[in-house]
Nucleic acid binder design. Sequence first.
DNA 1: AAATTGCGATTTGTCATACAACATTACCTT
DNA 2: AAGGTAATGTTGTATGACAAATCGCAATTT
Lengths: 243, 243
Amino acid sequence: MDTPFRKIGSDKLLSGKIEESIELAIRRRDYKAGEKLPTEGQLCDLFGVSRTVVREALRKLSARGLVVIKQGSGAYVNELSSESAIDSINLFLELTDDGSLIFDIIRARQLFEPEIAGLAALNRTVAELEELAENLEALKASPPEDIDGQTIIDIRFHSLIASATHNNVVALLMRPIFDNMPKVKRSIYAKNNLGYLTHDISKVLKFHEEIFEAIKKADPREASHAMLAHLKATEKNFKDSLE
Amino acid sequence: MDTPFRKIGSDKLLSGKIEESIELAIRRRDYKAGEKLPTEGQLCDLFGVSRTVVREALRKLSARGLVVIKQGSGAYVNELSSESAIDSINLFLELTDDGSLIFDIIRARQLFEPEIAGLAALNRTVAELEELAENLEALKASPPEDIDGQTIIDIRFHSLIASATHNNVVALLMRPIFDNMPKVKRSIYAKNNLGYLTHDISKVLKFHEEIFEAIKKADPREASHAMLAHLKATEKNFKDSLE
DNA sequence: AAATTGCGATTTGTCATACAACATTACCTT
DNA sequence: AAGGTAATGTTGTATGACAAATCGCAATTT
């Protein structure tokens, strides 16, 4: 039953208020990345609370990746990496997976990656082409039985293309998808394990090379088509493994 | 001086180890959503550490959205909502924005949303069509000067379509993009404020209706095209505001 | 019997103090 | 001046105490 009365000072916990306060200061750039925050003692004085409260506030901020705490030294504003944000997403996907995650990942890649490859074909620099070429060589050189290693190289190939769009939002949002590729791979090889291996790295390599050539030629349509073909093949591989 | 050897048991801090341990238990589903964790006192005994440490571990977990702590009651495994994960992403985007965020958002939408609309056209249910229809009515009924209100309805329209793909990954990853739409809107109206308003809700409505009709007809190609036209118009609107 | 109230026990929130572990600085020795 | 060492500062952990919120159960009221 709802009453007309609602909570007022939402965050009644002191550690919560102080967390907010420090977070705000960081968002306002009062403290920039790498800078040292006041010591626990100073924060106690500033806020007029006990060290317990300050420490718990700092702990929460560190858990969210906003600050790093170094024993004996102090608390510093984190050079914000995307890792903690990505981790949050991945944790959520893992915990809410009702079994559809793998298929959703496969489908999402088909939706997004062709377009990404197309944009990358337009925006890529020569340095990025170089990195892609190196990646192809690495895949060629990898031992045929080292599936995990190949997966890492595979992920990097697709990540490089996402980065080559020069769109930070795109590159960031694709990360959770790429992070889940090993799970997809594992699910494929878990089914037909040891016996007959459908895995054929030369096929993957061929697709990668086609995509690379299209991006090199700055041909978005062809890049997009090549990417879609690649992902369709991956999906077929996955579906075949379900029997 | 760095040695080539690094710590193995990475988290040397007790609170970190205990955080990990509890997190693992949650990931393993030893404690399911809504369930109550042992009390602080019990955890102290279990791990053989002080309450300080246990409390800081719980605080970190709560900051990451894995548990909720209720004073006088206990710590419970959180009904995991996507909010904290999304917040992390949004915070990261905000803090690392070098000025390109708004443009990246606009571009990312053009990459992703046409495909999404296409998939939604194939997978939408009648209930979802109903919700979209209601949303169109809401937009029609909104006061012309209530731009913030219209933005909320606009966001919901696009969110509904993303959900109608029935792909959790897609719906989740689009959230940070939608959350930033108000920022884009504000940047448009900040430029030509008060004077001549380029804002014309009837245009938006027309696009939305086209998209809706295509999705209703289960025509992915048309849905995709309509969505792209909509987003191109939005981009033009944005670019016009830059002069 | 059902609902409400009140009280005690449990649990989390905050404070204070003390000491350990680590980092930084200043000083001293060479 | 260079290098090592002690002093100092800062974070990590432990303990004890009490406040504040919640919960469970019995007593009371209706």
